[in-house]
Simulated scan of single mutants.
Amino acid sequence: MYKSTVTEIFWTTLVHSGLNDRLLHVAASDRGLCLISLQDDTHMNMKQWVGKKFPNAVLIEDKERLSPYLEQLQAYCERRSMSFELPLDLQGTIFQVSVWQALMRIPYGQIRSYLDIATMIDNPRAVRAVGTANGANPIPIVIPCHRVIGKNGTLTGYSGGLEMKEALLQLEGYHDYSATGHARFKF
């Protein structure tokens, strides 16, 4: 019997006021959530990312199939939930996945520094590499890379932009940071 080698990636969009009314593209494989795209031109970014991580994949828009993911994201945005119970399909290197797993251990409403994360993965000299892995996180919000700020308490880069990072921290009730640098970081 012939077995297809084509992977199906299901996707849909979400807009929520808790996310600054930004259009997000949410995608999942049959194994779990694999992408939340925060960048501008999100549909193109999603297609490019899926093409790199899932060669020969077919993108299928299916809001109903993604409703469990959307429901949990909406509950988070409405402060009805402080955690996610979702299957994840993590597409990254062993090092990246170890960083992302450490990020998921940061409690809701709390922050850690890049050094804290490097220490959590038993590699305290890998601070810059942790920053790079943090920036490559394909599932922001669920994998809370927004909870990582500079050691001096300042907001640092974020794939969705610093305004989005600040909005997520405020949503979680964390306000003890310095927004210094907002004018410099326009990404």
Rank of each mutant, 00 (worst) to 15 (best):
H16P: 03
V58Q: 12
I106P: 01
L168I: 06
G173V: 06
G32I: 10
K151V: 13
P55I: 06
S159M: 10
G92F: 00
L115F: 05
D40F: 02
L33P: 00
N137H: 06
G153T: 00
K63E: 15
S37D: 13
L19F: 09
I60C: 08
V142H: 05
Q39F: 03
P68G: 10
P87T: 13
L103T: 08
I141R: 06
L38Y: 08
N20M: 12
H16M: 09
Y114E: 14
L169T: 10
G161H: 00
V142R: 07
R105G: 14
S17Q: 05
H182F: 08
Q91N: 10
G153E: 01
P55K: 09
M82E: 13
S81H: 00
F10V: 07
F185V: 15
G181I: 02
E61R: 15
T13K: 06
C77N: 13
L35K: 04
E64Y: 04
A183Q: 12
I36C: 04
Y108D: 10
N137F: 02
C77G: 14
A136H: 08
I60D: 07
E172W: 02
K151R: 14
A126W: 03
T180P: 01
N152Q: 10
K47L: 12
D116S: 04
G32Y: 07
T93S: 06
K63M: 09
N45F: 12
T154M: 10
G181D: 04
L162K: 13
L86F: 04
V58N: 11
L90K: 10
T132W: 00
G160I: 01
S98I: 02
I117C: 05
T156R: 06
D122T: 11
S29A: 03
K3A: 14
Y158A: 05
D89N: 07
S37Q: 13
H16C: 07
P107K: 08
I94E: 15
M46Q: 12
H182N: 11
N123I: 00
R184H: 13
Q72R: 00
M164R: 05
V58W: 00
Q101T: 07
D62H: 05
I60K: 07
L171A: 04
S81Q: 04
V26D: 09
T42R: 12
Q91C: 11
V99A: 04
D21C: 10
S98L: 02
H43C: 12
N152F: 02
L171V: 03
L14Y: 06
F185S: 15
I117D: 08
L90G: 14
S178F: 00
F185G: 15
D21G: 10
S37H: 08
L169W: 04
L73S: 03
R105Y: 00
V142Q: 09
L33W: 01
V127G: 11
L162N: 12
T119C: 10
N134D: 14
H16N: 09
A27G: 13
A27W: 03
